[in-house]
Design a protein around this nucleic acid. Structure first.
Length: 925
RNA sequence: GCGGAUGUGGUGAAAUUGGUAGACACGCCAGACUUAGGAUCUGGUGCCGAGAGGUAUGCGGGUUCGAGUCCCUCCAUCCGCACCA
């Protein structure tokens, strides 16, 4: 009797749906466990074989924990705002909501075919008004809060307002970039607009001028990714740096907590390091430099090396530094302006990638050294970034390689402050040694010198100790259509919040999804009567970024239909944070940091009882695609087969992998593929075939290398695909997709089901007592699977099951006492087949998924003897069995006398015999 | 330039704390059963060698009775990046 995997899949998927088998109740009597996948963006290409890798692992773990008696929350949803749907809308005029809905139903269909145990009643979609209503609401909470540095937490802005009206902002603990000091009297005399503007310096969601990559031709802001060599990827238009009023989130206020919070998380060190680097804490000092002929200005710099203050020979400002407006003498203005224009054409990423190219101009202005009072020329150079520190550096060529290179390039002076160090070839960047040539720092060891320099800076009121972070406040507005509208309108250019009862602010109808003629975002196309109906002058036309919705979605699953709150207090008290989170590495610093930030904020405001979202994190590796490439002769429509391409100048072109089998291109299918290839010519191999090249790279629609799971499920069934994806290797590891081995896993499932078949082809499982041997196989398997799953080693479980089935087959085992628990062990990996076999065996107690994980019995595996490997100088030669009760000395004495031992000793006397009980014997000669 | 990761058979990989390297599969070879098979079953398979044996976890060194595992130097590949003052 052969199994029909397809109908088994369908039968059980239907059964689960009809019986609501995956519905999760808030059953507080059971311990909870929350297993979460990073929710996908539903792209038009559908789910590819890489997506399920993490989903399968999490589903296995969720099923395992259910068997272990936990109430497991395992939900799924969609991160459904995003650029591709908007791009498609621009091209076709179709509303992104329609495209998105279509893609979601395709995803759902594909997910369902894999037999995941998601509770779909809890689904969330970030683009659904029921959901983004609460994203807007959370934004309002950020707007209405500030960060109290004394309490190290966020607080309502109302408390700050009353503080200002009583004592002004002198000595305030509120986190802010604001420098302006005002008294209570001044505050109270501010107009309401002035007060509002001042408060924007404190709110955790705030408006400020920010540099952006602006493409005038597209009328839009672009991400670094969308720019190559200063030109937009789309259209190839020039891009420039421009200042723009943007919403931001004051994530910098949380830098210290985001950093220290990592210590208690069960994440890999690799990913923690990435976040630590991103946050980038550095300890040093702020130093103020006077500027010649501008006594009103103080140039503020941050340095991690105040000990090298006497090595400063010049200053460098970022080309965007505001002082350049004021301090550049007339005769230098032209050159500086020209340089600023030149730099504005480069993105920050370009500026950083290009280390070789040194550029800058002298501004004509001078700073005064705070101690020596020497004149220091002020330059501007693009290696100094406006977004880090103060956008200005004191250049110490002897101690910093970039300063050194800059000094050499422009022939600026270099003075050495390190005792006995040669700096003829390069700067000395190490933090060890002794300072010289530095007045009061002479002779001090570097760490001591840093200390002394800081004390002196403070004493002379020239500077102070400072902790700096490279983390920047997160820009929170996008000039796009397909995102959450802000619950904000403007009155006299002051932003005002829309009242809660008007939420959600739904996306308005627009006639096109492009920016307006005047370069305003698409939402500005809305009609006032449709959308802009609040008392202000206009609505906010920006939308929120993709990460807004994904920063809190894990909370909504706990209580997805709550109309009163974003999550009910009782629900969040029971379910708490995510116990296991599985997703791709690419979110290491984006999503994972923002979600942590929002969680900490919501905790501070008393909405949730924990301040980290994800306790345990597993980063699944990327499954890479194997793309096929064909080579077209430059300027012609002729393609050359792989072995002959070297004779020509060619361009590689990605070709749909469905037109290729075993690297051979199907020529007629290729000609029909796209109109431009209809009359292509080919230079073939001598045997008449056309061979393609290949490349292993990320799967993407544009590379035509996407492998969907559908065909494989069609052919082998969902269980085979689930097991095969796990069998490929550790989940964390990246690997190219290859279906070569799938038959092995498929064969295993068949072999396993044969255990349940009796000779006369009926389902025949016997009640007879199993042999000792069979029990041993079972319990060995239980132990290994439990151990492996507990350390998330999903791949080795598959081989453990294979070994068990191989051994049980050898034993001709058809004993219920063995096979029943075996099915439970199998069920997290192959739920459809496990249920089917459970049913045909006529086993009681409902379904396999409702059973308890088999209990491991140590006593069954207890052995009285052990087969010791006997090694000579570390090399294993033979084995000898001893009773485990025999002690080390007895074993050693016995082994030495064996004839085999004498043979390997070749007449030598052993120097030492090492016996590790229950492990190994090693004879040293 | 900085940061992170990874290097084990023809291939995917295994080897919890240092203790029998290559489990389990794919592939390949031989055989059985078949009209046939991309079905099923049996045996073999790191490399060199007829064999005894030798040799092997990117290269080179070190620690150890014993190293894929720990330490140092180097090499290669992949990923991320915001030249981080």
């Amino acid at each position: 009797m052969e199994l029909d995997f397809q109908s088994i899949d369908k039968h059980w998927q239907l059964y689960w749906a009809e019986n609501q088998s995956n519905k999760v109740l808030d059953d507080t009597n059971k311990p909870k466990y929350y297993v979460l996948d990073m929710f996908p963006y539903p792209s038009g290409a559908g789910l590819h074989v890489g997506h399920p890798l993490g989903y399968i692992a999490s589903d296995i773990y969720a099923r395992y924990m259910r068997l272990k008696g936990f109430n497991v929350l395992h939900p799924m949803g969609y991160d459904s705002f995003g650029l591709p749907a908007e791009q498609y809308a621009i091209q076709t005029g179709q509303h992104p909501a329609l495209t998105t809905a279509k893609n979601i139903s395709r995803y759902r269909e594909q997910l369902d075919r894999l037999g995941f145990s998601y509770d779909w009643d809890r689904q969330v979609k970030t683009s659904s008004p029921d959901y983004y209503r609460w994203t807007q609401w959370i934004f309002k909470q950020f707007f209405n809060a500030f960060f109290n540095t004394a309490l190290n937490k966020a607080q309502p802005i109302s408390e700050l307002i009353s503080e200002f009206s009583i004592k002004g902002n002198q000595g305030s603990n509120a986190y802010s970039d604001n420098q302006l000091i005002f008294s209570a009297k001044e505050w109270n005399e501010f107009t309401p607009n002035e007060q509002e503007k001042m408060l924007l310096n404190y709110r955790l969601a705030f408006l400020s001028e920010t540099w952006v990559n602006w493409c005038p031709k597209l009328g839009t802001v672009l991400a670094n990714d969308e720019i190559i060599n200063g030109l937009s990827v789309r259209g190839g238009y020039p891009v420039e740096q421009k200042k723009m009023m943007q919403w931001s989130m004051r994530i910098k206020a949380y830098a210290e907590r985001l950093l220290s919070g990592l210590d208690n998380l069960d994440w890999t060190d690799a990913i923690k390091d990435q976040q630590r680097n991103w946050i980038g804490k550095s300890v040093g000092a702020t130093v103020f430099f006077a500027i010649e002929e501008h006594s009103d200005l103080k140039l503020e710099v941050f340095t991690t090396r105040p000990d090298t203050l006497f090595g400063v020979t010049f200053m460098v400002l970022a080309p965007e530094h505001p002082f350049l407006e004021q301090i550049v003498p007339v005769e230098f203005k032209g050159a500086v302006k020209a340089y600023q224009v030149e730099v504005s054409k480069r993105t920050e990423r370009d500026r950083q990638a290009d280390v070789q190219h040194i550029s800058g101009v002298f501004t004509g202005a001078y700073a005064i050294h705070p101690f020596t009072k020497k004149k220091l020329p002020i330059w501007t150079g693009d290696y100094v970034l406006s977004s880090y520190g103060t956008g200005a550096v004191m250049s110490v060529p002897c101690g910093d390689q970039r300063d050194y290179a800059f000094a050499k390039h422009f022939n600026l002076p270099i003075s050495n402050v390190f005792k006995g160090v040669n700096i003829d070839q390069e700067a000395f960047a190490e933090k060890t040694g002794v300072i010289s040539n530095s007045e009061f720092l002479d002779g001090l060891e570097i760490n001591k010198a840093i200390e002394v320099a800081c004390q002196r800076l403070v004493a002379e009121n020239i500077g102070f100790r400072k902790v700096n972070f490279r983390l920047r406040d997160a820009i929170f507005s996008r000039q796009r259509y397909w995102g959450e509208p802000f619950p904000v309108y403007y009155e006299n250019e002051i932003p005002k919040l829309v009242a809660d009862e008007h939420l959600p602010i739904e996306l308005p109808v627009v006639d096109a999804y492009l920016p307006t003629e005047s370069g305003e975002p698409p939402l500005a196309r809305s009609k006032k009567e449709d959308w802009n109906h609040f008392q202000g002058d206009r609505m906010e036309y920006n939308t929120m970024p993709g990460w807004a919705g994904s920063s809190w979605y894990f909370l909504r699953y706990l209580d997805p239909n709550n109309k009163e709150e974003f999550v009910g207090k009782d629900k969040v008290a029971y379910w708490q944070n995510v116990d296991l989170y599985i997703g791709g590495n690419e979110h290491a610093t984006g999503h994972l940091l923002y979600a942590r930030f929002w969680t900490k904020f919501l905790f501070d405001m008393g909405f949730i009882p924990f301040d980290e979202p994800f306790k345990k994190l597993i980063n699944q590796g990327m499954i890479l695609g194997r793309s096929s490439l064909i080579y077209r002769i430059k300027g012609e429509n002729t393609f050359v087969t792989l072995s002959k391409m070297s004779a020509f100048e060619t361009d590689p072109i990605h070709v749909d992998i469905n037109l290729v089998s075993a690297d051979k291109l199907h020529l007629s299918a290729f000609k029909n593929w796209l109109p431009e290839y209809a009359d292509a010519d080919f230079i073939l191999e001598d045997d008449g075939s056309f061979i393609c090249g290949y490349e292993v790279e990320k799967m993407s629609k544009s590379k035509f290398n996407v492998q969907t799971p559908d065909d494989l499920i069609e052919k082998f069934g969902a269980d085979t695909l689930r097991m095969y994806e796990m069998f490929l290797g550790p989940v964390e590891q990246s690997k190219p997709w290859d279906t070569k081995g799938i038959t092995g896993v498929h064969g295993f499932l068949k072999k396993l089901s044969r255990l349940f078949l009796s000779k006369d082809a009926a389902w025949g499982v016997v009640d007879d007592a199993p042999s000792k041997e069979m029990l041993k196989i079972l319990h060995k398997t239980i132990r290994r699977i439990q151990d492996d799953l507990d350390r998330f080693s999903f791949n080795t479980v598959v081989s453990t099951l294979m070994i068990a089935v191989n051994e049980l087959t050898d034993q001709k085992c058809n004993h219920k006492q063995i096979l029943q628990p075996l099915l439970v062990l199998l069920s997290p990996y192959a739920p459809h087949l496990a249920e089917e076999l459970w049913r045909v065996m006529g086993l009681p107690d409902g379904t396999c998924a409702l059973q308890a994980f088999p209990i491991f019995d140590e006593s069954i595996l207890q052995e009285s003897t052990y087969d010791y490997p006997i090694s000579f100088n570390g090399k294993m030669r033979f084995k000898h069995t001893f009773d485990l009760s025999i002690n080390e000395k007895e074993i050693a004495d016995f082994i030495v006398e064996l004839p085999l031992t004498q043979k390997y000793l070749e007449g030598k006397t052993p120097k030492k015999v090492i016996v590790v009980k229950g492990k190994i014997v090693n004879i040293v000669s």
